[in-house]
Nucleic acid binder design. Structure first.
Length: 271
DNA sequence: CCGATTTGACCGGA
DNA sequence: TCCGGTCAAATCGG
């Protein structure tokens, strides 16, 4: 059921999370499957010295509220490492495209040049030396651009003052999930990880059909209720798009074709 | 084989 | 013309 996982990954734009692979005879119990994913996500992110997940997240990535003026790098106080990433906030419009800039520390464990994981999957499409900066700037766009037209981008650059801190500028919103963004606008790019914290799986109600897998990028909790939204073009037939995809996958022949092209034949143009 | 990354070319705006 | 953002062919790697 690798294919099914891939469908969900793509839809949810969350395949950074260690979602378990759904077994072939496991169709019915998506809720257990999701609970398991959540548990694994917690396991993965509440790593070092038993810090609560929320704390490690907020020390790893932080964002000032838009109203605040540039409280430029007040030095970290609580941080033992001394390099907690205090954010520089910047939110403006550039041709109508929302942008926001955050600063985040490189992962303290396994010191590397890897920028911090912000919960989305990105594909690098360029890198440039920037005049006056000692580190190059990396250009990324959302991996799911091809299938969902997701135009979210980001630029990542280490700052001169402290090579362990990255400055990350996000451009545009992610649209690579199923729920209509026309009904509720998606929040700005930065990390959805904290929202995993707020997910309340206790609210999931058993339903005879799987329903929409809404990964809850809007509010503070995950809703997996079988939401059907009338003005969402994906929902017009009243069914669940996830199930549609999944069924399409399951029914679309066993072998050779496990590509999304069989479902989205027309959506595969680049750019 | 397929998707991601690398990297020089290309291009548009200032 | 310079700089920075993007393209795309070559390459990498699972």
């Amino acid at each position: 059921m690798k294919v099914f996982k891939k469908v969900l990954d793509t839809i949810a734009c969350n395949d950074h999370l260690p979602l378990p692979v759904l077994e072939a005879d496991h169709h019915g119990d998506v809720q257990d499957w999701l609970r398991s994913s959540y548990a694994r996500a917690v396991d993965q992110y509440s790593t070092d010295d038993n810090k609560p997940l929320l704390e490690s997240l907020t020390t790893g990535i932080e964002m000032l509220v838009p109203g605040e003026k540039n409280a430029t790098r007040s030095k970290p106080e609580g941080s033992k490492t001394g390099r907690s990433p205090v954010m520089q906030r910047s939110q403006k419009r550039k041709d109508g495209v929302k942008t926001i800039t955050v600063r985040a520390a490189a992962p303290s464990i396994g010191n590397t040049e890897i920028p911090p994981d912000d919960g989305y999957t990105w594909r690098k499409y360029g890198q440039k030396e920037i005049l006056g900066s000692m580190f190059p700037r990396g250009y990324y766009r959302c991996t799911h651009k091809n299938f969902f037209g997701c135009n979210a981008k980001k630029q990542v650059q280490r700052i001169d003052e402290d090579p362990s801190i990255y400055e990350i500028t996000y451009y545009g919103d992610h649209t690579c999930h199923v729920t209509s963004s026309a009904v509720q606008p998606e929040p700005l790019a930065p990390p959805p990880l904290d929202r995993w914290l707020a997910m309340d799986f206790g609210r999931i109600e058993p339903s005879s059909h799987m329903g929409l897998l809404d990964f809850g990028l809007y509010g503070t909790e995950l809703s997996i209720a079988p939401t059907v939204t009338a003005d969402d073009p994906l929902h017009v037939r009243g069914g669940s798009p996830v199930m549609d995809f999944a069924n399409a996958m399951f029914n679309s022949g066993s072998s050779s074709n496990n590509s999304m092209d069989s479902i989205f034949p027309s959506m595969h143009n680049n750019n």
